[in-house]
Nucleic acid binder design. Structure first.
Length: 141
DNA sequence: GCCAACGTTGGC
DNA sequence: GCCAACGTTGGC
């Protein structure tokens, strides 16, 4: 089981929206590196949901319940024959007891090489197991 | 509101 | 296939 980190602009779609909907298809990702991460997801994997903008914090946990599959709105395959615009279905698992802020992550040197810190524009990334444990502890997830 | 760090586009 | 110009994201 791998844990990922998914960014979202809470004004567009927040973790609370996912809780309300119970389930959603995570569409709209177009960055190639982010899409590669989505293609590597498997049913049962989990994802921290991170709010960009004013919040800049991990606020909850979701689980991959289906996919990755081709976005029906944007069909097509890449050079490897995989869906170009890959999508997964998520369900809300749990809200973080205490949000883990970007400031806290940046302030801990264990996270210095983490993609969230190194590449601020990347919207989907795998979280290394050692770091995942730290985040879960901090967040109460 | 600015700008750094990317991605993308289009002319050649 | 390169790369200059432009667009976008997201932190500050």
């Amino acid at each position: 089981m791998t844990t990922f980190l998914l960014k979202t602009e809470p004004g567009a779609y927040s973790f609370d929206d996912l809780v309300k909907d119970q389930k959603t298809d995570w569409t709209g990702v177009s960055n190639p590196a982010a899409l590669a991460a989505i293609r590597s997801m498997r049913k049962g994997d989990q994802a921290f949901i991170y709010h960009t903008g004013d919040e800049k914090a991990i606020v909850g946990l979701a689980e991959v319940v289906a996919g990755p599959y081709e976005d029906p709105e944007q069909p097509g395959v890449n050079a490897e024959g995989l869906p170009k615009f890959a999508v997964v279905d998520l369900r809300a698992v749990k809200k973080a007891k205490s949000p883990v802020t970007l400031g806290r992550i940046k302030g801990d040197k264990r996270f210095a090489e983490f993609a969230l810190v190194r590449q601020s524009r990347l919207s989907v990334m795998a979280v290394p197991a050692a770091l995942e444990k730290v985040v879960r502890k901090w967040a109460g997830l």
